[in-house]
């Protein structure tokens, strides 16, 4: 369906460069901030003007941009939200007086894909999917289509969002984040509603060709609804697809996030799994955000390749044999849902 040749991730854990996942890094004041590397490939003048979402996206993408790509496909719910509200502040506080346009230009959600195009002088396909908790999944679907349409081409696809102080306030007011509480190591023992805020940028170099691939996407389902039977129906539908049929799911990577309202969805999916399917979680590593599923996709690729599942991720069962198939299930606010199955690539012919 879609082959992954290279991938890179900046997240609140040491996922960048040489990933070390065994030791869980702690949240700070109910937030999991991305660990930003020293950005060696970005000119300092440009780097200073970049908002965090643009910066981590470009940082994560740079290692994958040494080889040419035919286009850039980004999923982000909010893009440079911090710049957006900085500009909003100027409007209100200066009563629409003379404003500087820098924050405005950086605030548009397409600024990330645009900057990536600019830095890599890529004049190909360039698009930004902004469908909240399904932004990354829609970007992946786009990648599936475009690699079918251009089987010879490689594309960059990724998901990114930042914690902006303002978006954090809005999400707290709406009850999606808890501003007080215990840290990420106890995320799943919480009772009640709300999760931890997180951020990250995950980038993938993909194509329709298995030659040299390190992972592949074997199935995807994107849907919305608040009905548990819809989740069951979509999962049965996915498992019955020709590319999926008969494959054993070795690991379920669940987007459980400590919010009690989301548990029925995750429990429903867990109940569907075979008895020997191990279950792991990742939101204690990433926090909750609209494109956290992109980090899950990176984790799935990484786990398939390295076969090292840290203990702190494991919820149930054991991975007794080699992990060949990983199913990721994630819901954003119980209304947007996705399944993505990642598998070891077929040997190149």
């Amino acid at each position: 369906m879609l082959y992954f040749h290279d991938y890179s991730c900046i997240s609140p854990q040491p996922t960048y460069g040489n990933p070390v996942l065994g030791q869980l890094l702690a949240s700070q004041e109910s937030k999991l901030f991305a660990r930003e590397p020293a950005y060696s490939g970005i000119p300092p003048g440009i780097l200073r003007r970049m908002g965090k979402a643009v910066r981590i996206a470009i940082g994560a993408a740079l290692p994958l941009m040494k080889d040419p790509a035919m286009g850039i496909i980004i999923g982000t719910a909010n893009g440079g939200m911090e710049d957006c509200i900085k500009f909003l502040d100027q409007i209100i506080e200066y009563q629409e007086g003379m404003l500087t346009p820098g924050n405005f230009v950086q605030s548009t959600t397409n600024a990330i894909a645009a900057q990536l195009g600019l830095i890599s002088k890529n004049k190909g396909y360039n698009i930004t999917h902004v469908h909240r908790g399904l932004s990354f999944e829609n970007a992946l679907l786009d990648a599936i289509m475009i690699t079918r349409e251009n089987p010879a081409g490689h594309y960059l696809v990724g998901g990114v969002d930042e914690i902006s102080s303002y978006d954090y306030n809005i999400e707290c007011l709406a009850g999606w984040y808890r501003s007080h509480g215990i840290g990420n190591e106890h995320l799943y023992q919480w009772e009640g509603t709300g999760s931890l805020a997180g951020e990250g940028a995950s980038m993938f170099r993909v194509s329709a060709s298995p030659a040299g691939a390190r992972a592949q996407l074997t199935g995807i389902r994107i849907f919305q609804g608040e009905d548990l039977t819809r989740v069951e129906d979509e999962l049965s539908g996915l498992l019955a697809e020709p590319g999926m049929n008969g494959q054993h799911i070795d690991l379920l990577l669940s987007g459980e996030n400590g919010d009690a309202r989301m548990l029925p969805f995750y429990n429903t999916v867990e109940k569907f799994m075979q008895r020997d399917t191990a279950i792991a979680r990742f939101k204690h590593m990433t926090g909750e955000f609209a494109t956290a599923s992109a980090v899950a996709a990176w984790l799935a690729c990484h786990l398939l390749e390295k076969q090292e599942l840290p203990d702190h991720m494991l919820k149930k069962g054991l991975v007794g044999k080699e992990i060949e198939n990983i199913l990721v299930y994630n819901t954003f606010k119980g209304r947007q849902h996705s399944f993505m199955q990642f598998s070891k690539p077929l040997p190149a012919i």
Binding site: G79, N110, V130, I222, G225
Partner: peptide
């Protein structure tokens, strides 16, 4: 709506 929904922003 029950089908696929997506939002695009390329300015």
């Amino acid at each position: 709506l029950k089908g696929l929904i997506n939002t695009i922003n390329t300015a």
